[in-house]
């Protein structure tokens, strides 16, 4: 309760993903992977998590990179926020991603925390889940024997629960090419204490011949897990982007979460509901500006 010392645990530092996966199987749910440690270690120090073993991914080579991939991006799971913020490739191909990474916490956290850790942890107030939803990313999970690709839409299942299986390691995030005249953005109301999102909205849009041909919106912080805001998206597609369509879409930002908005010391459900609308509007305005600018 008041300690800041973790319970005893075993420590492994495998050199391959396969070995890490086998170790996960061996502990049968008792072990946790360790990436940047900035979500897991605080939980352990407060003894809210007391895993039998930690399997450190830090020694596995080749999990930290940002490269161009089929017009889009491939990002290694162990890539830190700071690396994403510094990447020109990310800034050009997925501005929402760079923007969100730059708004995570503070410099020390950004230097240690990883994109894979953030997504696997699936904190309801984490920034990156909203972004991978909006960018239609695929998340690559590997076990000792197999590899599969999970669409972001099917990754976040519930409060801190993802589609990853017990023996799987998240290894790569694939962001498809967003195409010409597309734009994305992330807008966030930060919790003053931790900087986590009270509400964070990522938007990715495409405009062709003056008409919005695609719009995806991901919302985090507002509910039990990050979600798409499909009702808002639908308002935009097929229309000429402009103040009135953005306003109409923003009005529906987060309606999917009706009855499920979070309520805690930082914000009431009512406030989050309205901020989902406000920040949907802000993210959309910035995304459209990039698409058409």
């Amino acid at each position: 309760m008041t300690t800041s010392i973790a319970s005893p645990f075993e420590y492994h530092s495998p050199e391959t993903v396969e070995e890490a996966s086998r170790l996960l199987s061996r502990y049968g749910g008792g072990a946790r992977l360790l990436a940047g440690g900035h979500s897991l270690l605080p939980l352990m120090k407060l003894r809210l998590a007391s895993p039998e073993a930690l399997i450190d991914l830090g020694r596995i080579g080749g999990l930290s990179y940002i490269r161009e991939d089929d017009g889009g991006l491939a990002i290694g799971a162990m890539t830190t926020y700071a690396e994403i913020v510094r990447s020109e490739l990310a800034a050009a191909a997925a501005p929402a991603l760079a923007e969100a990474a730059g708004e995570v916490a503070d410099t020390p956290v950004r230097n240690a925390g990883t994109i894979g850790g953030s997504l696997a942890h699936a904190d309801p107030a984490g920034d990156l889940p909203a972004v991978v939803l909006a960018l239609d990313a695929e998340l690559v999970a590997r076990s000792a024997r197999a590899s599969r690709s999970i669409p972001a839409d099917r990754f976040f299942r519930d409060f801190m629960t993802t589609a990853l299986r017990g023996n799987e390691v998240l290894t790569e995030i694939r962001v498809p090419g967003q195409g010409a005249s597309s734009g994305s953005a992330y807008a966030k109301l930060a919790n003053k204490a931790s900087h986590y999102a009270v509400v964070g909205v990522a938007a990715a849009v495409r405009v062709e011949d003056g008409v919005c041909t695609s719009a995806r919106i991901g919302i985090t912080g507002a509910g039990p897990h990050a979600v798409r805001s499909r009702r808002a998206e639908r308002i935009l597609v097929g229309k000429a982007p402009g103040e009135s369509s953005i306003r109409a879409a923003a009005q529906r930002g987060g309606v999917e979460l009706a009855g499920q908005f979070n309520e805690d010391v930082h914000a009431s459900a009512e406030y989050r509901e309205d901020m989902a609308r406000v920040f949907t509007g802000r993210a959309l305005a910035a995304a459209f500006e990039r698409a058409m600018g």
Binding site: L46, D106, K192, A193, Y196, V265
Partner: peptide, 29 residues
């Protein structure tokens, strides 16, 4: 003035019990 407050639940649990919940101002504020 803007952000710090120790919050107790009615039954006496300190809800703002860590720096993740108790908002000490930073240079940004």
């Amino acid at each position: 003035a803007l952000q710090e407050q120790a919050v107790y639940s009615e039954n006496g649990q300190l809800l703002s019990g860590s720096m993740m919940d108790y908002a000490v101002p930073t240079a940004e504020d």
